[in-house]
Design a protein around this nucleic acid. Sequence first.
DNA 1: TCGATTCATGCACGTTTATGCACGATTGGG
DNA 2: CCCAATCGTGCATAAACGTGCATGAATCGA
Lengths: 273, 273
Amino acid sequence: MSTELLLRERKSLIRERLRTDGRVLAADLAREFKVSEDTIRRDLREMAAAGLCERVYGGALPIAPDAGSLSERAALAPERKAALARASVGFIERGMTVFLDAGSTNLAIARAIAPDLSATIVTNTPLIAAALMEKPGLDLILIGGTLDRTVGASVGARAQRDAALLRPDLCVLGTCGADADAGLTAFHFEDAEFKRLIASGSRSVLAAITTDKLGTAAPHAVIGIDPALRLVLEADAPKAQIAAFAAQGAAVVLAGEGAGRTPRHGNPIEITT
Amino acid sequence: MSTELLLRERKSLIRERLRTDGRVLAADLAREFKVSEDTIRRDLREMAAAGLCERVYGGALPIAPDAGSLSERAALAPERKAALARASVGFIERGMTVFLDAGSTNLAIARAIAPDLSATIVTNTPLIAAALMEKPGLDLILIGGTLDRTVGASVGARAQRDAALLRPDLCVLGTCGADADAGLTAFHFEDAEFKRLIASGSRSVLAAITTDKLGTAAPHAVIGIDPALRLVLEADAPKAQIAAFAAQGAAVVLAGEGAGRTPRHGNPIEITT
DNA sequence: TCGATTCATGCACGTTTATGCACGATTGGG
DNA sequence: CCCAATCGTGCATAAACGTGCATGAATCGA
């Protein structure tokens, strides 16, 4: 009977399920593979011992994505950024080619992308690339060059040359300041240059911006507020700012508020009774 | 009798079955070739020893194209890799330009680099780049291009073009298999091509290799064992393997015993012929 | 041509492995 | 606090395993 699975194949499939679904339930696996739950539990125990998953009551979860200390910025107001991210990922549609700029909010967007989304993502940020590597459906393109460690991405001459060749359907810009008059701005000269370049070649531009950046201007201009720009803001953004952006034609989207508790890995396991 | 198969023919057919079906069962093969299961088991054992397949209970699987993503591999035997890393970082000296290849052991090396080391590190692996971003003394250069998610790095045409321009002082290669005869080998064709390219342009080459990879050969050759190569191995590496490497002129270094009474931080031991 | 040697193969034996079942302990929601 | 689901462990069993040995065919040297 070739329908029987070898032990290794079963474990391999479990790992695949973990990657794509973000979780597995012992009972489901037992039914699917037609073995007893004891066997599945043994598999999961061994995989957990090998560091391939985390055992939990009822099943298993993927190993905690190293949480690699990166930016203290990413640790800052994570639930606000997660809310912005949830509101933003909806604009990334199947089949699109999307540029994901550097920035902690964009990192949250990367993490919020559905595991099975099929799209091409281009980024100049290693941390975002690393996060996206967990999503099996994506084609990933990395823009290289000298890494600017304050920006956390490649924004130099080499990166700009690559960026100039790129015409994404959507450009998701990271932003250091956003003001109705000054437009979107950045702290670093080369970063601003890079953003301007990639945004100018994109069919549409999106920026998810936390409220603390509204009404502020960083030293270097990126792009002005115009009808090709879509802004995703928090629910507590000042009405005056929203009105000013809208007056210049930008499409403004508010992220749903509330969403108080963000579940653990973003992949909660639910035991239904 | 033309229906009888020579040993070579049988093995060849088994390999074909492995490629097409992704697995073979000892019992099926025995019935199909009209030989005893013992014979099939012997065949599979020999093929596994030659690195042509992976032996599992009940049959065999193709050689692990399925070793998992880079972040998953990094979770495997982390203390062994950390020991190798401690023994390896000593060869990265102040002022050097170093290429850090993809691989979970190399990720450990990246993490083990002293925070204040002043050097230029080039990598094609986002995860390694992200780890190195925490070390303020380093200049970082990222090699971009399409990301291969099984390798966890950029190894395609674009990356190879960039790599061809690079002449690092030291190339730290990731390795999928290491054998005195077959040399260093890799699972993926383009990855092997990339490694060969970058190694050939380097003044010296280093590879830190866990014991489980010794004596195995992956499908694609990278470089042979020669005097320009320095191998960092674990303390429990088979003496025969060490001798075979040394006999071909490679400099072999043993990482200090991980547990117990290592006098200092993994003080390496030079082996001389 | 003949004996020695090598080698692939099959068989017998004891060992290991994967799996399922039974039982008592643990967990977590209500 | 209770109850049901889930868990870990010990045990039994059948399949798969490795090893040692015998057989027969092919190869080699003289």
